[in-house]
Design a protein around this nucleic acid. Sequence first.
RNA 1: GCCGAUGUGGCGAAAUGGCAGACGCAACGGACUUAAAAUCCGUUGGGCCGUAAAAGGCCCGUGCCGGUUCGAGUCCGGCCAUCGGCACCA
Length: 849
Amino acid sequence: MDERRKPYPFDQFEPKWQAIWEKQQLFHAPNPGEKDFDHARPKFYVLDMFPYPSGAGLHVGHPEGYTATDIIARYKRMRGFNVLHPMGWDAFGLPAEQYAIKSGQHPAITTRENIAKFKNQLKRIGFSYDWQREINTTDPRYYKWTQWIFLQIYNSWFNPATNKAEPISTYSGKNPDEVRLAYVADVPVNWCPELGTVLANEEVVDGKSEIGRFPVVRRPMRQWMLRITAYAERLLNELDKLDWPEGIKLLQRNWIGRSEGAEIDFKIGKSDQKVRVFTTRPDTLYGGTFLVLAPEHSLVDLIVTEEQWPAVREYREKTARKSDLERSDLSKDKTGVFTGAYAINPATNEKIPIWIADYVLIGYGTGAIGGVPAHDERDLEFAKKFDLPIVIVVQPRGDEPAFGFTGEGIAINSPVINGLTSTEAKKKITAWLEERSLGKGAVNYKLRDWLFSRQRYWGEPFPIIWENGNHRSLGESELPVVPPPLEDYKPTGTGEPPLSKAKVWVRYSEKATRETNVMPQWAGSCWYYLRFCDPHEDRRFVGEQAERYWMSGAKPGGVDLYVGGTEHAVLHLLYARFWQKVLFDLGYVSKPEPFQRLVNQGIILGEDNQKMSKSRGNIVNPDDVIDQYGADAFRCYEMFMGPLEQMKPWSMRGVEGVSRFLARVWRLFMSENQSGDWELSGKIKQIDADKAQQKMTHATIKKVTEDIESFSFNTAISQMMIFVNVFTGVEAIPLSSMRSFLVLLSPFAPHIASELWEQLNTKFADARGDITKQSWPAYDETLLVEDEVEVVLQINGRVRDRMKMSVSATDEEMKAAALANAKIQDRIVGKTVRNVIVVPKKLVNIVAD
RNA sequence: GCCGAUGUGGCGAAAUGGCAGACGCAACGGACUUAAAAUCCGUUGGGCCGUAAAAGGCCCGUGCCGGUUCGAGUCCGGCCAUCGGCACCA
């Protein structure tokens, strides 16, 4: 293509229009109270998941969602909305730091370079972002407020009575540090020696770090935690009113993992000690023949008998050394040790042995279970292995065997609840336990508190200092806390964060030292959508008026449309919801949920149908595509590939096809003169469209409008192709149809639409101004109505003939015409017509045999 | 193991329960051209009958098996395959 002439001169007009948009700041959205703000228009906030600016630059997957949102943004502007469509950078994170370790270059420099590269690439695609609102999570003017929000979390607690966060000052207990939403705890963490940091559960995949795939081991360490579990119920319930894909809601529900059941106390021997267990099947209590504690359970020390100590100690040490991976890998084979102690089953009053086993997790429920081997697979396996008694207490309703039956049935061998269904039995036994103070109904969640500290350099420092072993928050006036420059960014390897090497910085005062952990990468993205509302406000994390305006709406979520990949289904999306709720409870924001509507774009595969990766060498770089085919072709191809949500392979041939379509659009408007220059085609005239042309135009307006609304961008483009095919070769082309068409095309291919619109304006005075300032065309449904339609004639559901009929034909007329049809006649001779089904304007089906 | 998504030509795909394959790619044929590229026009799911060639006709076909219905890619039940998530959560 280099030496050859391009099919249309996109290389000239695409940069031209990008320069015009930038110069005129056409896509800047003023805030309420600012110059040019229009109160009469409704608002629309359309947001992309902002990228991590990696050194590799954009790949074609990024702009897929970005193109979709850009189409929506441009469309909504033409429909009269004030559109907020911003972009920014989630720039804290490991790669820049890893690079710093290797090269010694400060991550801030790497980050700045990568951002410049990303921004340049995005601008070449012609996205209509309001670049005045660009934000960068590593900018002190931004993370000052990330730290500020942390302080709000730190300085509040979750009041169960009001079911919301409140300032810590309202807490009446003795030690507020026990209830803060941000707290310090010694917890078994996922320690990654290679990365020199701990990781959140969510960042560990199959026992390896999500980044780098290095092994991860369990190790107790003192860490900052955020009390997200306090919000489990609300995070679960408030999903209902969000317009998110059901699949994503389900992922979050499963992650939160609510289960209802009971907590039951088992007395230990003759002492006053009790073990509390959680179960979802209190109705199987009579079948409980042993107890199992997690090896780490604090009661173990108190109950183990002399002779069992050595075995217990050895087992506990062995478990502690196992990583999570090993622990679950060996899941097929149950292990455990008897403690020598016994408990009393409160239902049967029988003495049952207490074991420890690593299939019971310290972090879930009470860290102890009642073993009901007859009706729980894991307990059954354990009982078989260690020869523990098995008692059947649930009778299945079908003909399944009761032994090992885990479903719901009828309670048996259980005096208090015999004959009841499992559901009834659960209620009754729980009430029975409550009356005797032996237990109570309880709800448990799989969700754990959020491990919030990292032993890294390139992240937000905590606005916290330590004095005499106690933590204390810095004042708001001391923000931002800026990380000190370091000679050496390497992790210390001991778990001591790199910031501890900056001795001067760490020393806050005579008596106090700074916290040296930093926040995880998720911190900055937990609230960036709020900052976009008002990115330059320096007195508050977001201006109140701006927040109330852009986040407004009748539904709980403030952002009207949020587009990004499924990989953030439970991490970013859950964390952001959590922060939003804390800020909402404390009265800082107006909405309980951040994102009202969520759409996930599918992954784009390489041409070989494999995931794009450096090692496969199948990565497509948007720059190369744009060099060859232009930004409009790139955008349109990304949308033409198939449904947005679907995974689909890239195809350069496909890009070429879409590029040919845009060239046809170009030549519909432009022709080459003698000297080889493009000029407006003389075929375009101010004439009325004939009936068929008018119908095609309105059908196209309708289809494109509806398809944009339903995110069916691929079929919208198909319709525009049909339109162009119809008008290609027409001798006199009606101007009005071309005007409408260009407006429809402009969200998809804004450069060519702008250029052709301008060309029309040089000759015709029927419209004025830039195409981006036009309003979206309306369609007239009456023009789409046909006089005659082709009706399908079927016999027994098989098409036998077709005939033209007036749309106003009655059912009777259609039936009569069908039966009179020659081909139908031929086929039904000698047969009995049993029934005739008439679908108006569509078909007649004759049932005959 | 559990949960979810997907399965339609050579390929990407389209189809409020009503003509399966729109639109695009690829392929083939034609026009233009000294030639090629580009462009334009046409053909293109499979099988069979038919004819000199056409016209035309019939049957099969949306992962597999069954059901509901006048009529099923679409709804229901069971299975298979691929992808994604969770995974000893009591």
